[in-house]
Design a binder for these strands. Structure first.
Lengths: 250, 250
DNA sequence: ACCTGAACACCGTTCAAGT
DNA sequence: ACCTGAACACCGTTCAAGT
């Protein structure tokens, strides 16, 4: 943003630490490093420099790098899901959409988040992000009137879809940045689309046919469209004639 | 399987290479290492030992570790998707289910695959696995009668969901192994379920309510149920009354 | 209890040199 | 064209020592 990157980078090193070291401060610094340089940017060396300390000090507060990454992920997700829990309860479908968009925006701000989310999800149901997301989505599923026996299956389907789609979006923006500051997101999708068009016509007829749709699609719209597919499928099963679209045909 | 693990491990080192080194052989060895010890097991040192060569030789055939991981992923996915393309064309819904189960089984055999799939997917639409999976699913979407303008959205939704669900399953089996050879998959889900039950009742009422379903669920059934949600959503949009379940109520 | 910083083991990658 | 293997830069982590 501002032009004095030299100063901002240097400052902290020689600056005497004002606050004592704490797990919170470490996680905060980790998120900053991740935001600035991606997953590769988080090293204990960069962290010690930024916090003006040694590696041993960090290990006093945090077990290892994996735990630190997990804590950073959890902090960001918790903030993303803390959107408007107050106020009149949404229609459940809108609530699910809000959760999806919240995670969408969070990965937009923190491009490293998507990969972490799938990694953590894959680490087992006890990683702290998993219950968090499950709870947010699941409450809406319950409010939807889904019978209790299907809560887990329905919620899982929504969570899997949302995280997959959100990850895809994060990838697109992250990649656009990789191609250089001049290349924007549209430019990235454009070149990706061209790559699809150059695939073998015999092996990839379908992919070639949708190459243009890849270029022109809007990730946010697509995310919501997919959420609606799943919501429709969930409600159709039990509420005959149930549609995900709350407003009738207008 | 057999009891002579000592021999199998040692053998290759001193054994003179019979075939010349090739990209294929390297990828094959990489898959074996990944299968045996997970993603951490694939190092250039382990690879050189197994192939009885030096690192430089490997770099002659492969650009870097990332490309090697990508090639390993692609090889395994290609094999998984090569299920019954011959024979009479399936009903599209069955075809989608077959693709999902094919990937499910592949990640069961190669637990490292799931993380790679999401990583690759996240790397942009040109990673070779992406077109492959998109093509497999997309052909079925097209056969479903979805209007062309929605092909991309519908296929994306299915692919995102399938990969998410498949990844979750891979995580469960992989984690079960981590807990020790005596702990089986049921044991793992059991302890995970107990962890959910111990969450704060105020913060996680829903998660606690579905803890038992987590323990008792069958990943394969759940995968198919989710696929049906998405399929129903997709078809409901355009084919009024269209259901994912091909057989009527029997 | 909390922090320091040198040291360790290990990793991906390079490259001059061989055949 | 293909392979060798020593060397390099960098990483996560440890630990005896300080306060």
């Amino acid at each position: 943003m501002c032009q004095s990157s030299e100063v901002t980078t240097r400052t902290r090193r020689s600056q005497r630490r004002t606050e004592a070291l704490s797990r919170e401060r470490i996680v905060e610094a980790a998120v900053e490093l991740l935001d600035a340089a991606g997953e590769g940017g988080l090293t204990f060396r960069a962290l010690t420099e930024r916090l003006a300390t040694g590696p041993g000090a960090i290990y006093w507060h945090v077990a290892n790098k994996d735990e630190l990454l997990g804590a950073a992920t959890d902090a960001v997700v918790a903030a993303a899901l803390a959107v408007g829990p107050t106020g009149p309860p949404d229609p459940p479908q809108d609530g699910v959409r809000a959760v999806a968009l919240g995670l969408f925006d969070a990965t937009d701000e923190h491009p490293w988040l998507a990969a972490q989310l799938s990694t953590r999800l894959s680490r087992g149901p006890w990683a702290s992000v998993t219950p968090r997301i499950f709870e947010s989505v699941g409450r809406r599923v319950r409010a939807l009137g889904v019978p209790e026996g299907d809560w887990f299956t329905a919620t899982s389907a929504l969570v899997h879809y949302i995280l997959g789609a959100v990850g895809q979006n994060a990838a697109n923006t992250a990649n656009a940045r990789t191609l250089g500051p001049d290349t924007n997101r549209a430019g990235f999708l454009d070149s990706a689309s061209r790559a699809w068009e150059e695939l073998d016509p015999d092996d990839y007829p379908f992919v070639r046919a949708v190459a243009k749709q890849l270029r022109d699609h809007d990730d946010r719209e697509q995310l919501l469209a997919g959420v609606d597919f799943v919501l429709t499928g969930i409600t159709a099963r039990h509420l005959p004639g149930g549609q995900a679209h709350t407003p009738p045909a207008t």
